[in-house]
Design a protein around this nucleic acid. Structure first.
Lengths: 370, 370
DNA sequence: CTAGATATCCAAAACGTTTTGCACAACCAT
DNA sequence: ATGGTTGTGCAAAACGTTTTGGATATCTAG
């Protein structure tokens, strides 16, 4: 599916060249043998005629140093281009000022936005962020979780996009700082959590469709095991107060297309549904495509609603009515929570944040015909 | 611009709760005072009645160890849940197995794809990837470059999206492993570089428009200082062999909109251009919008071509004809290059890769009317 | 029986910081 | 004079690994 019924032209194959190297390990003009080791604090100390302790104090300001000596040290630092090895510093300090962000797919705009929020929050506090892209692969996830066990990162923002294995997560959360983003885990008390208000999102859609006169809706849900997906469905069903036919998808465009196409082949949407609510935008796009291929027009014949408000939603044709998730804020909040705990050693006063969502009414929904 | 002429409904304001914490620093049931320090190699050694050296050898396999002792050590390792501190290991090894990826905006799908490629390449070799999102902010970029000077990362994939300051980069590249992605730097010899074939992309567009009968095109370029942008323009001009009116934009949707809207207000596209070629998709979207607002239809009145093939391109209305950039491959290749140098200490045989692009002909281009 | 090889393990050094306790001098107030 | 403070700087320990050069015991071949 997602047919590309157009031509495609490819440029010439690979070009590839090898000019003379700028840097190599051995090309020191006149000192070929000795690989120049970066200056250490001892080198600085020796050159300045003081102890390493003093250099450290000058640089950190941790203890007062005679201004005259300090100036001398600073000049040597500049001359040698000394930069403290953060690795050694971290080892001594017992923390690295780096955290991880575990997500399934950075090329999904939702997670990209989330990552941006996380990166901003981390950067604000001088923390680095390691991108742990799992591709929904459990082994890969495990390898990344290993980073926290080996204490290379001070904490982890966990947004796996799949139902997190409760047991594994609990074992880790007991020992290491972990914040959950976008997906809750049932019964995990006191965890640091930031999610969008999925239930409210579903509710808004339910109210919207009801107000437009719809009474029968086909709902394409995400995987059953995902709390967020269930929350969307529950909120919707409660607010819609009409007939809801559910089909379980997997959040991918293909599944939205497949589910709808299958129903249409079997003789139209069940029970004459006049609307389709997909639990995310990708599935909504798939549904849109299937409907169009069957000759149905949106929103005249069928209204379609998505969830997420990814960038393509407003550009699609027709522009997709959808629920805007505060992906950036989810990432930012979860990360800020985590860092508050990591840096200050305290559980933040409010450790569970449910961020507000917005219904974006665009062109893919309309009042029912009758 | 990017008007949202629709209503918007927001869910209830913030919900926020504080349940009982699962993990705190002080809640060890019966050992409140002692914060449990993670087991070190010495603890394992002591518990197993061997030296730390032996433990290290058992775990690394670096030297043979009596199978009986080894078994005993391994059992202690499991019992104590010992995981080597990678920080100490890195300090000793002199490298961290982490690299940085410097990009301007992770929420831009092009860079998200690039990041995905970079992450994959890094993960393949057991490397971690630190996300350095600069938001086009020079200070922020500098802070991230500091990570490489402090040797916290072993190298950097540099895709700043803005004309890199040649001087600063040269200073760094002389001393640290850096690979350039997506954007070349003039006259930097022997650098590790992976870019898309921007020139070929421009050429393909030029040939395409020419074949459709167009003879006058409005070209919206990116910033003049960007080699990639110039290459696109050059390739286009050479292949198109017609009149090309250039306007300089900044790769943002607003600039595409603004430039076109202004021209239309002033009395139509200059010289009766029948096509618009924007140097990236976002500007093309802006142009699309401006044209639509002016009552012109695409592609009947004007053909529009973009560059990048971001996800929204195929979903837009009409689907955008554009040049597909191998963002994933650019990220992956640049990273692989970098790691080849970092891990093996050798400059790769081909250090400059120009990756092929594809013209995706979709619905936004058509033959000229006459 | 002995010289060399092999198997097994350990002690110490090294990686590059920060932190802590102390030494020494100079100064002040009694 | 005396005791206390302040200013200044250093030595040593600690962070947790890996690596290297032996040491000791056991085995093998002549």
């Amino acid at each position: 599916m997602t047919p590309e019924p157009y031509e495609t032209t490819t440029s010439e194959p690979y070009e590839t060249t090898t000019p003379e190297p700028t840097w190599t390990r051995t090309s020191e003009p006149h000192a070929r043998a000795a690989v120049r080791r970066p200056a250490s604090i001892k080198d600085v100390a020796a050159a300045a005629g003081v102890s390493a302790t003093t250099v450290s104090h000058v640089l950190s300001g941790n203890r007062p140093v005679n201004e005259h000596t300090a100036a001398r040290v600073r000049s040597v630092v500049n001359r040698l281009g000394y930069v403290p090895a953060s690795l050694a510093r971290s080892l001594q300090a017992g923390s690295t000022s780096v955290i991880g962000l575990l997500i399934p797919d950075i090329s999904n705009t939702f997670f990209a936005e989330l990552a941006k929020g996380a990166e901003d929050a981390a950067h604000d506090l001088g923390y680095g962020l390691i991108l742990c892209n799992t591709e929904f692969d459990a082994d890969r996830e495990d390898r990344y979780l290993g980073m926290i066990r080996s204490r290379f990162i001070d904490g982890m923002v966990y947004a796996s996009g799949s139902p997190p294995s409760r047991r594994r997560l609990e074992a880790l959360m007991g020992k290491f700082p972990i914040a959950l983003a976008d997906e809750e885990v049932d019964g995990l008390q006191g965890a640091l959590i930031a999610t969008a208000d999925h239930e409210a999102g579903g509710r808004l859609v339910g109210e919207h469709l009801r107000a437009l006169g719809h009474r029968r809706t086909l709902m394409l849900t995400g995987p059953r095991a995902l709390k967020s997906s269930n929350a969307r469905a529950n909120g919707f069903v409660r607010a819609f107060r009409g007939e809801v036919v559910e089909r379980v998808g997997d959040f991918k465009e293909t599944s939205g297309y497949g589910l709808v196409a299958k129903l249409l082949q079997e003789g139209g949407l069940p029970e004459d549904c006049t609307a389709v609510f997909a639990a995310n935008d990708l599935m909504a796009f798939g549904a849109l495509l299937a409907l169009r291929e069957a000759g149905l027009s949106v929103p005249e014949d069928v209204s379609v609603v998505g969830f997420d408000d990814i960038r393509a939603a407003s550009l699609a044709h027709p522009p997709l009515t959808t629920v805007h998730q505060p992906a950036y804020d989810v990432g930012r909040t979860a990360t800020a929570q985590l860092l508050q705990y990591v840096t200050r050693g305290e559980v933040p006063p409010a450790s569970r944040h449910t961020l507000p969502v917005e219904l974006k009414v665009r062109g893919s929904t309309a009042p029912t015909a009758r």
